[in-house]
Write a protein that binds this DNA or RNA. Structure first.
Lengths: 130, 130
DNA sequence: CGGTATCCGTACTGATACTG
DNA sequence: CAGTATCAGTACGGATACCG
């Protein structure tokens, strides 16, 4: 099987038979990434998750969790008690993905000084951030 | 310094002193990822890149490349010839990032069957993929 | 507590036209 | 060829309010 990067090279990422791209888009959404990282190694409730992925709105969090659950990356367990209690955790599939996401996130964190330096050197002369 | 995943766990990702998140957002934009993957191991011209990251509009591609260049991940070399000739390639910094992105992309590709199976089992009763 | 429904602004997209 | 500029349509994200 060819790799995704191979597929990119051949321009095969738009066809309907390549759902990798959808999944790539899902996995690379900011909130998706933040949820995965937050759930790494622990089980969290909705509100805890909301605190972890600071800045997420309830709507986006709910939507993101739904998609992650739908993709089999996150498991949702609702306890039918009077104050609702719902717990989210990574499935084994989600754990596998999260390892890669965490590696990427940590790379960014580690190399941030260099990135910031580059940004200062090349960029904002021409244009403000955007 | 602590890792990004650690930071997520402590809910420290919204403060101004944590630009990792911006960078994470950049790096995880679909077009950004596709550009990085396309440039992996080779130098491409604008139009080639456009063909690779199929579906991107000229506007978005230009915008994405600018950001990647500004962050020091992609190098832009313009040859001042009559039919303009511009080449894009990864910087060493960009190569480092792209390795991780590619690892993640390939993981997705490899595990896609399982993801699709999960999606069918849990999800699309409520909503079409979109 | 754990969401859903609604509104609204921004960002993205696609098409087209223009420049060097 | 490699963009930039502009416009109109759409989708996405955020804030608020409300429900079980």
């Amino acid at each position: 099987m060819k790799s995704l990067s191979e597929a990119v090279r051949r321009g095969e990422l738009h066809t309907a038979d390549c759902p990798s791209r959808d999944e790539l888009k899902h996995a690379s959404s900011l909130w998706g990434v933040l949820c995965l990282l937050a759930l790494r190694g622990e089980t969290l409730r909705f509100s805890e998750l909301r605190r972890r992925a600071t800045g997420v709105s309830e709507k986006m969090l709910a939507q993101t969790l739904k998609r992650l659950e739908k993709d089999g990356l996150v498991e949702r367990v609702a306890h039918p008690v009077v104050p609702p209690h719902v717990e989210y955790s990574l499935t084994s599939l989600g754990q596998g993905l999260t390892e890669h996401v965490a590696a990427l996130a940590d790379w960014i964190e580690f190399n941030l000084p260099e990135i910031m330096a580059a940004r200062r050197a090349t960029g904002d002369l021409t244009e403000p951030v955007q």
